[in-house]
Design a protein around this nucleic acid. Structure first.
Lengths: 153, 153
DNA sequence: TCCAAAAGGTATCAATTGTTACTAATTAGC
DNA sequence: GCTAATTAGTAACAATTGATACCTTTTGGA
């Protein structure tokens, strides 16, 4: 049988990257234009809104964002008074990040828009398809992470 | 019923971005370490190998890479003699990119590795799952692109 | 309790990426 | 066929991103 040829256009890592870039472009512009906020900043806000106060390190661990990215975003948000950084009683090196009232308001404004955007795009699919898709992404994560964990020099 | 709350961790654009980043990191390192090549460079090589000679513009249109990114990558590849740029008889502004013998060799070396990597990760899924996944990505592309086409200022 | 090693965070610097402006070639309207 | 408007590609600049080194606090021995 013929050896399988590589077609970039069908290559899954490429397709993933393509779709992600397409989607992210629009979202980034949207958040930037409407709320003056970057994606890392938005992620931090969303994460804190969901979890309550949290350290930068924990955000890094969850999201795999670079710690410098998180640091910069946290500083910017603090400067805009969307965040405050409380001293962490359990560890003087870190701060606990928490949303200010203003930060909560911003979150309350963005979150429905994000959900609406997600709905608009994925309304073309069935619940089952969406669930399968999401779970497939999660399984891919697990596979890649496990490879990383083992096969490292 | 309770209004749907946003959980970043389940938010599909975020999940896509997360998985893509995870996957791309590893791949980029791999290509860089083994072949001294970046992802944009690899994409150009793969695309030319598949389609034969092609202009930069056509690569941009297909891959949605920035035209500057493509320009830089093409220059770098030409410097390394992996690519040559033939004058385009049909349009003097552009060049036709084509792989040199060396470029073809490099492609022949990378392609199987890429396929192997894809296989390694996706061997955990059934053919049906993979096809569904790929087609879902393509449909998302189509939806986003169609929105872009219509809803523009 | 003191010292070495590690961890949270940031500053600084390097590299990558994207923007804007420009050149050269082409097409289109007249 | 000549100008005006477009397009392919690049250069020069600005902004983002990431890597390294550093400071401070904490932790874990001896």
């Amino acid at each position: 049988m013929a050896k399988k040829m590589l077609r970039l256009d069908d290559f899954l890592p490429y397709r993933l990257s393509f779709t992600t870039a397409l989607l992210s472009e629009g979202i980034a512009q949207n958040y930037e234009a409407s709320f003056g906020i970057t994606i890392p900043e938005w992620r931090i806000i969303a994460w804190i809104a969901e979890k309550g106060s949290i350290t930068q390190q924990q955000i890094c661990a969850q999201t795999r964002m670079d710690k410098m990215t998180v640091s910069r975003a946290a500083i910017a948000l603090t400067d805009r008074a969307l965040l405050h950084r409380l001293p962490n009683p359990e560890d003087g090196r870190s701060h606990l990040l928490a949303l200010t009232a203003e930060g909560q308001q911003l979150h309350a404004a963005i979150a429905p828009r994000a959900l609406e955007l997600e709905r608009r795009i994925f309304s073309h699919f069935s619940e089952a398809e969406i669930d399968a898709f999401r779970s497939m992404l999660r399984r891919i994560d697990a596979i890649v992470l496990s490879e990383e964990g083992s096969g490292r020099d």
